[in-house]
Design a protein around this nucleic acid. Sequence first.
RNA 1: CGGAGCGUAGCUCAGCCUGGUAGAGCGCCAGCUUUGGGAGCUGGAUGUCGGAGGUUCGAAUCCUCUCGCUCCGACCA
Length: 437
Amino acid sequence: MRLSRFFLPTLKETPTEAQIVSHRLMLRAGMIRQHAAGIYNWLPLGTRVLQNIIQIVREEQNAAGAQEIIMPTIQSGDLWKESGRYDDYGPEMLRIKDRHERDMLYGPTHEEVVTDIFRNNIKSYRDLPKNLYQINWKFRDEVRPRFGLMRGREFLMKDAYSFDINYERSKHAYNQMFVAYLRTFARLGLKAIPMKADSGPIGGDLSHEFIVLADTGESAVFCHKALLEKPAPSNVDYEADLQPIIDDWTSLYAATDDKHDPAMATTLGGDLVSARGIEVGHIFHFGKKYSEPMKANVIGPDGSPVTVMMGSYGIGVSRLVAAIIEASHDEHGIVWPESVAPFDIGLINLKVGDPDCDAACKKIHDALCLMHKDVLYDDRDDRAGVKFADMDLIGLPWQIVVGPKGVAKGVVELKRRATGQKEELSFDAAVAKLTVM
RNA sequence: CGGAGCGUAGCUCAGCCUGGUAGAGCGCCAGCUUUGGGAGCUGGAUGUCGGAGGUUCGAAUCCUCUCGCUCCGACCA
């Protein structure tokens, strides 16, 4: 992609409304623009990151046995009256009347809809278990949206819903999502720690929050040091008993400040880590809370109806974009983990119009594209400083700097964004180095 | 929902107190010069001063209402 044609409105100055670093950087890097309070447009750079995250979330959900569906954003109020939440939910739920004066709403969550899908289509215990998920926009009319995407009103969320015949099977579904989450966040380049959580208004008796550690996180968290070093499970057999993995992770102390037990924590001594965190995932087992009032039954082995056990599993996908930036940035801008970076490589032509520089860039660009690398080629007729600053700001993992001095010697400069480390390499060596990654 | 603040050029902001027909820096356009970390010079374009009403000979400025946005608190994926 040629930067001269790419829609990338970067800002040198920070817009006043942005308070936290992820919000500032997303605006400055031309990823998003605000449309209204807590509602954002996603520009091309932001869209690319969001889609990379979506893809990783999707792959891990599929691997864990969940199946993707798409539910409506606008829902009928009737289902919510049935579950009892139409009155419970409060003004946070955006209510809409259609032209026939029917009560509609913009979905803040989808338990009712998915339960309706289930009960209308699944009749036998033999069809269980099922885990259905979607990646879709939701709206919660927060009293006070803030922190950019971190606390927006409209947000992209992955929400999965499991259906099982009994508690034991349901717990297994919960464990599957637990493990899938560990893997998902690790792939996103994040340290996310599962912490015991209140199940809140959604209800239920088993619940964990996944907290990303970032210095600028909104809440204080405490955990055992060993959790930070623990690698995500690999080669997982999702059909096997996952309880040992869960126990391994949950046996170590981890709590958000509202659940924090100072007495318990002091027993850890020097192993206690006190940090700040951002909630990016939340999993609940809530049993029959919705299946009971909404009559989501299947016929059991003995021929009598059984109310199914459910769980729900959320990941704040759009919030993750902000969380990753909070966890990975420096004074110059964003530092993307390779797995979510909007492009793999930024190619800077320091002297556009110089035949040698142009030719060298074209050669490198074509070679990398041939190897299926996403390259953002800065072919703008601008000063070097502007290009360096923009490239650091948008945080691509690698930069190749092509300038007249280097080209005369047959070399380019390869820079690692995360470390700032630079090395001079021949054209071929630079391409070779980047294509083995 | 309580408390506070801000709306003036694409962005950051000055002007408002003390009314007199709208500014700076950056960005944008053209040209020249420059060229390895957000350049220099010259010229140029851009505003219903958030909106409505009122006071006044005259309102960005004073008054009233209204809309939007932000911050602190309570609440929250």
